[in-house]
Design a protein around this nucleic acid. Structure first.
Length: 426
RNA sequence: GGAGAGGUGGCCGAGUGGUUGAAGGCGCUCGCCUCGAAAGCGAGUUUGCGGUGACCCCGUAACGUGGGUUCGAAUCCCACCCUCUCCGCCA
């Protein structure tokens, strides 16, 4: 959500910034609505002031035993005028709020210019110190089906296409990845572990800015008007919605595992093979709520926490600085981490590390108070995946395959697999 | 799902439809006192919006949420949400 006060002062700056994301914000319309709203607010408050005064006078008159019929008639007409104005004002405010809520966040001045993935900037690439394989690589689907550890057809039977069913060692490997990641983030990087609800209400979905834009991308439980979470960012960050946090407790660092659900409406094509794009996947999420001055640094810290996982798994990855048009609705700056899938021969997004600055905080009325005195202020919120499994699973399987079609277990995961060092069957 | 009780400031807790943003207590902050502390005494201590960029000040709004009655609602009426207790069902 945008700051109306900033808009009053710097409408052109706001419009220009948002335009970098390829969005044309009608700031003139917003300013006009705001002006009308303020005028009506002022007039309405004057009516109410007079009404309050009149009511008190009536109260005193009655107490003194005097008749106050004339004053009461006058007060009634005041109330009616105030009420009419209020209705009108509410409508204008609703229109203004809807308009403001539809604008994406302003990108950071340092975010790369551009609207398509071609303008994303590669920041760095990391390659493990391993010899290149000297045999023909299979892709993850062929490998996993060959071993019987992934059963997409039965997943489709149970639910539908894109709902993976892991079997045996495949299921165990998925769980090992989750436990490894969660243990690393909570045990070593100082995140407080949460276990969150997998469904959220509309206020929460609005707070982290999935609503209104992404309504069609989420699963809606109509009967209860709840959304299945597309990421645990939503329940985690909304934990403190409508709260004033003690500044001394910042930064707040939370990590949680959750299943994530995405309709992927409109997504189709080559990306859909196997586990590349599915409706349900698992993810360990990292969220921080910090003081504004530190958020840029925090973003790099989270990026490091996420890439640490890939380095321990010895998986090749690269980091992209997303251009303005590629960032999510609420982000001011975003770094994507892509892991290399050698069998599929493509880079797979396994994490987005985003700085939302005060955009989400304002939407969800999340504030903090620095020191004992002073006004509540908006903190900055950030999150990053640390990491998402289904694609990570692809990279592990394809990178650790043997010429016989087996999958070696990365050293970092062997303890989580009961000491197993290779999958050769279910 | 059924029955009942309840939601008031950071916390506890009062509040007969009338000058109540809200008694009292706790906590916290500042001051006095003290060598220092405790105790005691005194003062202060919610947030949003508008006037105005900030302070002060003025106005307005907020007692779970949203409506309604009324000149006037924390108080009366309606709907909804949440919490607790009991019963039922259930992983």
């Amino acid at each position: 959500m945008h700051d109306i006060k900033r808009l009053r002062q710097n409408a052109d700056d706001v419009k220009t910034a948002i335009a970098r994301k390829g969005f044309d914000a009608d700031t003139a319309k917003a300013l006009e609505l705001d002006t009308r709203w303020r005028q009506m607010t002022q007039r309405g408050d004057e009516f109410k002031a007079e009404l309050n005064k009149a009511s008190k006078a009536i109260g005193m008159a009655k107490k003194a035993g005097r008749d106050a019929q004339e004053e009461m008639d006058h007060a009634r007409s005041l109330r009616e005028q105030a009420a009419a104005l209020d209705d009108e004002k509410r409508a204008v405010r609703a229109e203004l709020d809807t308009l403001l809520a539809s604008w994406p966040a302003e990108p950071d001045p340092n975010a790369p210019e551009g609207l398509t993935e071609n303008e994303n900037l590669e920041v760095r690439e990391w390659t493990p110190d391993e010899p290149a394989p000297d045999f023909k690589l299979q892709d993850h689907l062929a490998l996993a089906e060959g071993l019987g550890i992934l059963d997409m057809p039965r997943g489709a039977k149970i639910t539908g296409g894109g709902w993976p069913l892991y079997v045996g060692k495949g299921a165990r490997l998925e769980r090992a990845l989750i436990n490894f990641m969660l243990d690393t983030q909570t045990g070593e990087h100082g995140y407080n572990e949460l276990y969150v609800p997998f469904a959220v209400n509309r206020d929460s979905a609005f707070g982290t800015s999935q609503l209104p834009k992404l309504e069609e991308d989420m699963y809606l439980i109509e009967k209860d008007d709840l959304f299945l979470i597309p990421t645990s960012e939503v329940p985690i960050t909304n934990m403190h919605r409508n709260e004033i946090i003690d500044g001394d407790s910042l930064p707040l660092k939370y990590s949680a595992f959750s299943a994530c659900f995405r309709r992927e409406a409109g997504a189709y094509g080559a990306d859909t093979r196997g586990l590349l794009r599915v409706h349900q996947f698992n993810k360990v999420e990292l969220v921080q709520i910090v003081e504004p001055e530190t958020s840029d640094q925090t973003q790099l810290e989270i990026l490091g926490h996420a890439t640490e996982i890939l380095e321990r798994l010895k998986l090749r990855y690269r980091v992209l600085d997303l251009c303005c048009g590629e960032m999510s609705f609420g982000a001011a700056r975003c770094f994507d981490i892509e892991v290399w899938a050698p069998g599929t021969e493509s880079w797979l997004e396994v994490s987005s590390v985003s700085n939302f600055r005060d955009f989400q905080a304002r939407r969800m009325n999340l504030r903090y108070r620095a020191g004992d005195h002073g006004k509540p202020e908006l903190p900055h919120t950030l999150n990053g995946s640390g990491l998402a499994t289904s694609r990570l699973m692809v990279a592990v399987m394809e990178s650790y395959q043997t010429p016989e079609g087996r999958i070696r277990i990365p050293a970092a995961l062997q303890n989580y697999m009961g000491g197993l060092d290779q999958i050769s069957g279910v």
